[in-house]
């Protein structure tokens, strides 16, 4: 029996683009950028939902909006029954303790002027948890749990490699013992061998702490590896979602198909495989009108966008 932890419906995040002072004075109608445009999905407790798509599809915006790091322009997101977008004051603080985030860039995600200890303990300081000694103890515990040593606690971020920095970022996200973690492209800036270490670490931590992941990535192999269910995003919308095997073995949406076709496999049988590549550019929500790709002309494009939706 699964329990729904997060239920998102009709999430919308529209931006007003380029509305400068002069534009306002001249009464120029600003462009609306529909970065996320009516996204709905559910995340079950303890599972990993993979959110996959190409650049500009709105996947990161979705993750950040869910955590109230950006304000949505529409829709609801019920976390454990309560609408995240309605929270304020102490309730919002409680939600922030229950939900964490791991970022893509291991360089910009750690303050270069703080030591590993200060970075990992920051969430505790912010939420006024424990005494200074208890926080130190917790930082030591966490840094060991993510595979570094306590001797490295007083080092600065630039003394660590990319993979080690990412481990520190993960330790920080776990400091408040969250139930739900948004992993925003956590391995895409890492080398292949290090990427595998971090994926294994995330796997282990999920088992150990009963974590629920929203795993945002553009790398389909990574998504296949880590996810239980997958949602494919294109131009601010989810075009297909369902269990990982179904999506990867029997994709219904032509875009999903095209994505899967495009990935080169690391196998000699791949040699010389002619890919029927999707023509045109990856569309940007900024110029929707201009973004016509042949795939959108596909007979199945609008038939049943969520063919596999929650088949389980």
């Amino acid at each position: 029996m699964t329990e729904t932890l997060l239920s998102v419906s009709d999430l919308e995040k529209h931006y007003v683009d380029g509305a400068s002072l002069t534009d306002r004075l001249l009464g120029v109608e600003p462009d609306r950028v529909r970065a996320v445009d009516g996204v709905s999905f559910e995340v079950q407790r303890g599972e990993t939902l993979g959110l996959v798509g190409e650049s500009g599809c709105g996947k990161s915006t979705t993750g950040e909006t869910l955590l109230r790091l950006r304000e949505p322009t529409g829709g609801t997101a019920a976390f454990d029954g309560e609408d995240v977008f309605e929270l304020s004051g102490p309730e919002l603080a409680t939600f922030r303790r229950r939900a964490g985030i791991v970022f893509q860039d291991p360089f910009s995600s750690l303050d270069p002027r703080l030591t590993a200890r200060e970075i990992i303990a920051e969430p505790l300081v912010v939420n006024d948890v424990g005494t200074a000694a208890e926080r130190d103890e917790r930082a030591a515990e966490l840094i060991e749990r993510v595979g570094l040593s306590t001797g490295q606690l007083d080092r600065y971020p630039n003394e660590f490699s990319g993979g080690q920095r990412q481990r520190i970022g993960i330790a920080r996200a776990l400091a408040l013992e969250p139930e739900f973690v948004v992993c925003d492209e956590p391995v895409s800036a890492l080398d292949v061998s290090v990427q595998a270490q971090i994926l294994n670490l995330l796997d282990d931590l999920q088992d150990e702490f009963d974590l629920t992941y929203l795993f945002i990535a553009h790398d389909l192999s990574v998504v296949r590896h880590i996810s239980d269910r997958v949602a494919v995003m294109y131009l601010g919308e989810i075009v297909e979602r369902g269990p990982v095997e179904t999506i990867f073995e029997d994709p219904a949406h032509p875009y999903t198909e095209a994505l899967l076709r495009s990935v080169p496999r690391a196998d000699p049988s791949e040699h010389g495989r002619r890919v029927d590549a999707l023509p045109g550019d990856v569309p940007s929500p900024r110029d929707r009108a201009a973004c016509f790709r042949a795939v959108e002309d596909h007979p199945y494009w609008d038939s049943d966008p969520l063919a596999h939706a929650d088949a389980d």
Binding site: G100, E122, N127
Partner: peptide, 13 residues
């Protein structure tokens, strides 16, 4: 817009 600032906001700072 650095991610460590976003991270701090995500923990409620």
């Amino acid at each position: 817009s650095q991610e460590y600032v976003t991270a701090a906001r995500s923990m409620g700072a």
